[in-house]
Design a protein around this nucleic acid. Structure first.
Lengths: 354, 354
DNA sequence: CTGAAAGCGCTTACAG
DNA sequence: CTGAAAGCGCTTACAG
């Protein structure tokens, strides 16, 4: 018991140096580049460190050095399971490459404040992250304001689009390709009135709306856009509006699974029989889409792949910071499930109680 | 343009002092206790800070001072929407009380590694958090090993039970009360073979299994426990085992909504008609339970209340660190939905293709 | 109410 | 290969 119980203090580099009978700087060097320290002293230092339970203080190291040996990961939205999938894959890849530890710092956008913009990150969290000076930053999800992110650090987005001219990189699904897969599938099923729920909440949503518009134009279909952001709630609101449209669309593509869930909910509440009276599809292929009771057709962005690739972009940027920029689009698949399996039903069903 | 573009460096206390024509320590004091600084100099300091965009460096402050003016929040599981609800409420309460900033640091347990224990927190994240020396820590969710958490810091758990003798506090739902609500509801519906899915993955799961056992004993009902942790996947596995039991239970209580979802999925895949052939209920009352297509009866722990109370416990502990310990149990409600609305159906339904 | 000094735990040139 | 010194940006006594 060298330390008082419950003390937050840990052994310092000074303690280790004293115990090993060497100078502080040698201990520092031993932890940084062991090959430059003599064998005998190295062993003594390691034994001392082991015995004292020494671990370098993260703060002191970050403050003194040019930066800290870790990659910051910012998860923008704790409510979308998509992001946990990507974070897991990225983290596993970074771990596998050794040497770089990492911190996961997440912001919790207030879902209660409905009026608020999607993807607001906490300034204080970002300030702290900037002070910590990570070697690079992985931002998972769309942030409302990229200028709130730490500066002077290479940034790679996963499942989000960087602002033009920001010099940031991204790895995300090819929205045009995903949208085409959906249109091909839905048209093959006989759908011609295909609506889109989404377009709000930043880059990805906008990109998918544009892809939707392009797919409509290419086929001479009418564009039916019902603005929504990425949440179940917003999807449900847009879905309710959609159901009041005459003639009603026979199919809906939502900006993501969560919004698609909302459309399903709105349709259920309106008494529609799904999927006969309304086909619903989403993007992201989260586990929710795979639940038998949801069974949602969804564009599969290969989330694990996105996480892995984003991690690799970061590792590459550590080697050569100038080689960072550019977007990497992942070719998606389509997982067809029950939510789009029926032929278009009655566009004018017998009205039911809502 | 005082700074090179893209530089990570920010103005320091020295810059501000120079610009305002005062000493460093006066600037420090001005940010710490403005009332002790003369009016004229205070204004000059503030103007200088404003102009230079000065913000105190988090690291330097933490290193020099006894601790940092923030509350650490650890979200154990990014996949359970319950935790985001609690985190939001806690964060809002802390914000409302002013003065304490906060950081959300989340660990991402590997869902891919099925063999792994639930609630493992990343040692590196915890080490960093310890170095940052927050005033207190809010841990949301069950950690596998409390000894991995930072020491020397008051810790309050939300929706988790502290280890006995740890001196940590907790705010969580009263599992006995919740279980009783479920039993009363299910027995009123005529159920007598009521199974439990859960019991693994730490304190909360164990506590609910014990509550289940107590409720069974009090009513002379047979105990039918199918071990599972908190995930949809584990719930589905346990559900599949449950469905092979003869005679089959007519109702299932799952340790949480996610596991309940898994039970529903397993039953759907086995071709059962829900809720007629199997009533399913969960704990947590997350948004998932409220989706019309899920419509899961769930014990409502009042998540916002738990978050708020946990935040208040922390604020109280800041005043008086000795007054921390103890558990606070929140009295739950029950939200009855379609998943338990039918009377017990055929315990031996016509066999169907699986 | 104010300023010079020491120190938090580490790293980084820079001499030996 | 090794050690004394300066410094990262701040805070905290301590003397004026």
């Amino acid at each position: 018991m060298d330390k008082p119980a419950g003390s937050a203090s840990r052994a310092t580099i000074r303690d280790v140096a004293a115990q090993a009978g060497v100078s502080k700087s040698l201990v520092s060097l031993a932890f940084k580049d062991a090959s430059r320290v003599g064998e005998a002293r190295l062993r003594r230092i390691r034994e001392a460190a082991e015995e004292l339970g020494y671990q370098p203080n993260f703060l002191a190291r970050s403050l003194a050095a040019e930066g800290s040996p870790f990659i910051g990961i910012v998860v923008v939205d704790l409510r979308n399971p998509l992001f946990a999938d990507i974070a897991d894959a990225a983290r596993a890849e970074l771990d596998a490459q050794g040497q770089y530890g990492l911190i996961t710092s997440a912001s919790v956008p207030g879902v209660a404040d409905e009026g608020e913009r999607y993807g607001r990150v906490d300034d204080r969290v970002m300030t702290m992250l900037q002070d910590l000076r990570p070697r690079a930053l992985l931002v998972i999800g769309t942030v409302a304001d990229a200028s709130a992110l730490p500066r002077g650090v290479p940034i790679v987005y996963a499942s989000a689009a960087p602002e033009a001219g920001s010099g940031h990189a991204s790895v995300r699904v090819d929205d045009r390709a995903g949208m085409e897969l959906l249109f091909e599938h839905l048209m093959e099923r006989g759908h011609r009135r295909i609506a889109f729920v989404g377009g709000e909440g930043g880059g990805v949503s906008r990109s998918r709306r544009e892809a939707y518009a392009a797919s409509c134009r290419a086929r001479g279909l009418e564009e039916l856009v019902f603005p929504a952001s990425y949440s179940e709630r917003e999807g449900a609101d847009a879905g309710a509006r959609l159901l009041r449209t005459e003639p009603r669309p026979t199919a809906v593509i939502a900006v993501n699974d969560l919004a698609a869930l909302g459309v399903q909910s709105a349709a259920e509440r309106a008494g529609l029989e799904l999927p006969r009276e309304l086909a619903v599809a989403g993007f992201d292929n989260t586990y929710l889409a795979g639940l038998p009771r949801i069974s949602l057709t969804s564009v599969d962005p290969c989330n694990a792949e996105i996480g892995r690739l984003a991690a690799r972009r970061i590792l590459a940027a550590l080697q050569d910071p100038t080689a960072l920029g550019g977007d990497e689009l992942v070719r998606p698949g389509l997982v067809v499930r029950a939510s789009t399996q029926a032929a278009p039903g009655g566009a004018q069903p017998a009205s039911r109680a809502v």
